[in-house]
Amino acid sequence: MASSETHESNRRDFLYIATGAFAVVGAASAAWPLIHQMNPDASVQALASIEIDMSAIPVGQSITVKWQGRPVFIRHRTPEEIKISQETPLEDLKDPVARNAGLGGDVDASDANRVIQPEWLIVVGVCTHLGCIPVKNQGDYNGWFCPCHGSHYDLAGRIRFGPAPENLLVPKYEFIGDDAVRIG
């Protein structure tokens, strides 16, 4: 008698647990589309690459283009600027990692790892601190200076002083001709 009651209650518990589990799985599956809809949609993702003709940028000047809704700085560096950047000792850098989307995660932040052709520096113009846009040709290192919270970037877009934790991100890009580049 007693054992058959236990048996019965076990079967009942199993039924309740199975039903509850189905309810949880159902609710969770229904929630996912409601969350995923906030991710970038197909039309946004389709705009993932842009092509830029850089032939009109004089040496020593830079332009800002919009890519994925963010500014990208393209700087035509002078030989002197390249030299300063290349000779900066790695131990002076606040962030020793290249932060180059085209390279692996562990490479060092030497100037060679921040560019493809030394005269062209291409970085995402978003301060790695809290997302402001740094101002060009300012700050202690003549690269960029973020007015929001005082981060100083050098001529290779590397953080040298201030609260920003990382170097300016180098996006994935490739040269598609002498002075044209495809970002993304």
């Binding site: 589309p33 409601l34 995923h36 809809q37 991710n39 949609d41 197909a42 039309s43 946004v44």
Partner: peptide, 13 residues
């Protein structure tokens, strides 16, 4: 139409 075509699960919602 953007919801129906491009938004993730937009057609379902």
């Amino acid at each position: 139409e953007g919801i129906m075509r491009d938004v993730n699960y937009g057609w379902l919602i």
